[in-house]
Amino acid sequence: MNELRVKQSGFRNGIAIVAGGSGGLGSAICQRLAAEGVDVAFTYNRNADRARAVAKLIEEHGSRALAIQTDLTDTAQVDRLLQRVNTEWSTPSTVIYAAGPQLYFKYISQLDPAIFKATMDQDIYGFYNLASASLPLLRQERGALVALSTPAIVRYTKKDILSIAPKAAIHSVVRGIAVEEGRFGIRANSVGIGLVGDAGLFETLTANGDIDEKYMQATYERVPLQRLGLANEIAEAVAFLASERASFITGQLLMVDGGLST
C-alpha cells in the first residue's frame, strides 16, 4: 500500500474488495483503485488466467493484489473471502459489487421463467451475501459500499428486464444500508452504468445478436452524448463514491450513462 497516495485520495486504510474484478468493468475499477494506492482483493468465477492478468495490472500500479475464486451465492465462500482478506492484509474499508450473471435481451413475454429465476438468484443473493457479511468490517473502518446498477431503473428499456429487475432490488438494499448503517459511518451508493463499448458485456451481446446496427442507431438517438461509455469512465465514478471525496454522499444512484436517464 502506498500510504501517501491513499491518504491524499481518501480511501481510509486503502484496502478494497471488488466482487467481479476479473470482468471488463471490474478490471477497470481494480486498476483505478490501484492507481490511487489501494490494495485490491477481487473475486473471479472460473477464469484463473484472466484473474492472474488483472492481478498483474494492479501490481503494476504499485499496489498489492489478491485474486480469490468465489461463488458469491455461497455464504460460506463469501465468509472465507472476507476472512482471508482480513487475515492476510487487514480490515477492508471499501467493498464494490461489480459482479453479475450473463445477460440476454428478451421481451418478458419470451423469457423463460427458469432463466429469470437463475439471473435473479445469482445477482441479488450474490450481492446480498457480500453486503451483509461485509457490514461488520465496514463498521470498523467507517467504510464505503458501491454497487453497479443500471439507468433502466428510472427509464425502462425494452427487453432489458434481466438487468432491471435484479439491479432494482440491489439498489433497494443499498438504500436500506445507507439509512440503517449511516450511524456507524458506512456510506452506500450505486452507479447506474449505460452501455459501455469496451467491456465484455457489449462484446457478448453483439456476438449473440442482441445488439445489432438497428439497436445501436436507436441507442445513439436516445443518448444525448450520442456515444457509448468507456470502462474507465465507470471506474472513475465508482472510485469517487468509494473515496472520502464523496464523504457526504450516501443512498444515491449516480447515473453514468451519457444522459440516457435524463
Rank of each mutant, 00 (worst) to 15 (best):
R50I: 06
E213I: 12
Y104Q: 15
Y44K: 10
I234V: 14
F127I: 08
D198C: 08
S190M: 02
T73D: 08
Q8A: 14
I115H: 01
G126D: 12
W89K: 09
R175H: 08
A48V: 14
S134K: 06
S27V: 05
Y156C: 07
E180L: 11
L103N: 03
G62C: 04
A218Q: 14
F116H: 12
A199M: 06
G251N: 09
G176H: 04
L254W: 13
L260V: 13
Q77M: 14
G192Y: 00
A152M: 09
S9T: 08
I124H: 03
G258P: 13
T91V: 01
K7C: 13
A169T: 11
G229R: 00
R155A: 03
T70W: 03
S190W: 01
G259H: 09
I68T: 03
V6D: 07
D121N: 11
L230N: 12
A35H: 10
I170A: 02
I108V: 15
L81Q: 12
P224M: 10
V146N: 05
V38R: 00
A67G: 08
Q110V: 04
V18Q: 01
D71I: 01
S163T: 07
V78D: 05
E233Y: 09
T75P: 09
D71V: 04
G20Y: 06
I161H: 10
T73W: 03
G23K: 02
E60W: 05
R142H: 13
A35T: 13
Q122Y: 11
G185L: 11
N47L: 05
K56R: 14
L148H: 01
V174L: 03
R80W: 09
L66P: 01
D160W: 13
I170M: 05
Q102F: 07
D160N: 14
V95Q: 02
S90V: 10
E203M: 13
E3R: 14
S93V: 08
V54N: 05
Y107R: 15
V238W: 01
R46Q: 10
G100T: 01
K167H: 05
V154P: 00
V154I: 12
N45P: 04
E60L: 14
E141I: 01
R222C: 10
W89S: 09
A48E: 15
A53W: 08
G197P: 04
A246V: 06
K158V: 11
